[in-house]
Amino acid sequence: MTTAAPERGARAAAPRARLSRAIESAPLAVPLVLIAVVLTVATDRFLSVDNLTNVVVAAGIVAIPGLAMTLCIAMGEFDLSVGSTVSLTGAVTCTWIVGGHPAGVAMLVGLLVGAAVGLLNGLVVTKLGVTPFIATLATLVIVRGVSLAYTGGRDAIVSSSTLKFLAAGRVFGVPMPVVLTAVTALAAWWMVNRTRFGRWVCAIGSNREAARMSGLPVDRVRTTVYVIVGVAGGIWGLLISSQLQKGSGQLGLGFELDAITVVVIGGTSLLGGRASVVGTLLGAVLIETIRNGLNLLNTPPAYQRISIGLLLVVALTVQAMRRNAPAEALDDV
């Protein structure tokens, strides 16, 4: 379920390698099952339909930006501005709804704003040559400022059934966020494993200069990935605003780390060159299961932070130790 860069492509086609790649996501299933067993024993409600639905919906919502971030990280880059995009998208959409526009139009405008933030990131990174980590750090600050200035520090409160449907509606009994995540995940899987674009993304992640010299449209691919992350951040913003029925400059604070965390725990290497779609999905489920479990056990939030931090460190240590050339780990990132 992971894909490799072209130079590793030949090997990747071999069935044995494909099997080993499938096993790569397996280590995630181990803590997931363990935690599930512990929670089933420790609380009597963990396995209830309501609770599992909560976990899956929450995981699905964070997985959508996570999947876009997977592309970005596979390309060897980061987008830190996604939390601010969440805030701005929700603020714009809700303000348009308050202004009397149809909810559908408002949501579309919100997504366009998300795409615009992505385009801005892409252009700053490619045309101005600014390191992505810092460029998106700057846009994180700027977009948050725009969101606060746009709302003037006041919430845009809505009561829209169309917007509500996005987070709370059901299609054939399946919660909408899960449907959206499934569609996003299939699209991401297809893109990464079956399209030229996906191969290009991984090629750029493996060696950007080599990709450039072999004639790939590097800047265009990078910009496109940032736009995808922007749109995914926009969808995230719509989902949050749908749940809370408001847009505000206060929403989405620190969300960028949530999105990156699920990708990293999912096993996509920060060195770039590989993307694990299934891993990101599992990572999101794992994180949300832990959070849900600690909530069920009435655990103070301090311990939630510690456990997610430790999980990150453990996940990465395992990842690093499995690599054959340990010194390689120190070269990048």
Binding site: T43, R45, S48, D50, N51, T53, N54, A58, I240, Q243, L244, K246, S248, Q250, L251, G252, L253, R291, N292, N295, L296
Partner: peptide
């Protein structure tokens, strides 16, 4: 934070 309170309430309802 509103986002966190939303999740906490959902989880609390699943629990009780």
């Amino acid at each position: 934070k509103a986002e966190e309170a939303y999740k906490i309430m959902k989880d609390a309802l699943a629990k009780d």
